[in-house]
């Protein structure tokens, strides 16, 4: 009997496919998310848009919030640790969190090194803007990838950019010969064998979700259409007028992302979605996606 094998950790993400993972800040929101059909909840102190508004240093949530959420739902509970913050991740593991997001939404604890995720029994999800970043995270032990997008903006444009880029790069490496792949591995800063594996399979060796700016049912369906295997919705749900209805609508649109009549129906009278931010107005450290490479 073996725990924490790569098959067990990656397999956990496989079971989330086609689903929606929702950010929640307390037990009540977690219950709403579960009742709406979320496949997991991400327990947080503040959703990304509030982190953005508050400024300052964003850290791992108070363990009490994670504990409260864990008590009230039977679906998996995820939580975020700062990039490179080994101890926050160990604390979350010891609490029995099911998945850790080593996340650029929080202020990085290390601007060079990520956590060696291979050492952990529980799986990690990490953000990526491109194929090189995705594969570096997988080398470090990430069992699931998500696009970084631009969290807390309610603007899907960056998630679209990242997903298209990753898929475009995979298609490109699939067309390269073995000798060209040696150079490509160097250019991307990734392990050659892992790159060959991706080139041959035509896909990442782990599940890839969309995240960072998904605000409406149509946004979620768009990411599925572009080849995401599921979606994370952060501020979009609990910053909308009617979280319950919004959450249900996003779940349905994700399941039936090619059924436009259904997406029409679930999009009716949802109230105002979160306000949203034009990415061009963000610069420097406000661009969370640039916090790690």
């Amino acid at each position: 009997m073996e725990t924490g094998t790569s098959r067990v950790k990656r397999g956990m993400a496989e079971m989330q496919k086609g689903g929606v993972i929702m950010d929640v800040m307390n037990a009540e929101q977690a219950k709403i998310a579960e009742a709406a059909g979320a496949v997991a909840v991400m327990a947080l102190e503040r959703v990304p848009s509030d982190i953005r508004a508050a400024g300052g240093v964003a850290r791992m949530a108070d363990p009490t919030i994670v504990e409260e959420v864990t008590k009230v739902v039977s679906i998996p509970v995820m939580a975020k640790a700062r990039i490179g913050h080994y101890v926050e991740a160990k604390v979350l593991e010891s609490m029995g969190v099911d998945y850790i997001d080593e996340s650029e939404v929080l202020t990085p604890a290390d601007e060079v090194f990520h956590i060696n995720k291979n050492e952990f029994t529980i799986p990690f999800v990490c953000g990526a803007k491109d194929l090189g970043e995705a594969l570096r995270r997988i080398q470090e032990g990430a069992s699931m990838i998500r696009t970084k997008g631009e969290p807390g903006t309610g603007n899907v444009v960056e998630a679209v950019r990242h997903l298209r880029l990753i898929h475009g790069q995979i298609r490109r490496v699939s067309s390269l010969s073995k000798d060209e792949l040696f150079n490509e591995a160097k250019v991307l800063g990734v392990n050659y064998d892992l790159l060959v594996q991706v080139a041959e399979a035509g896909k990442l060796p782990v599940v890839n979700f969309a995240a960072g700016g998904v605000a409406t049912p149509a946004d979620a369906a768009l990411m599925m259409h572009l080849g995401a295997e599921g979606v994370f919705v952060g501020s979009g749900i609990f910053k909308s007028d009617n979280p319950e209805k919004f959450a249900r609508a996003i779940v349905e649109a994700t399941t039936h992302y090619t059924d436009y009549k259904l997406i029409t129906e679930v999009s009716k009278n949802l109230g105002t979605p979160m306000k949203g931010i034009d990415i061009k107005t963000l610069s420097g450290f406000d661009r969370m996606q640039d916090r790690s490479i």
Partner: peptide, 10 residues
């Protein structure tokens, strides 16, 4: 069997 950390193969 518990939470994800208790997941296993055999």
């Amino acid at each position: 069997f518990g939470r994800q950390r208790e997941s296993f193969e055999t």
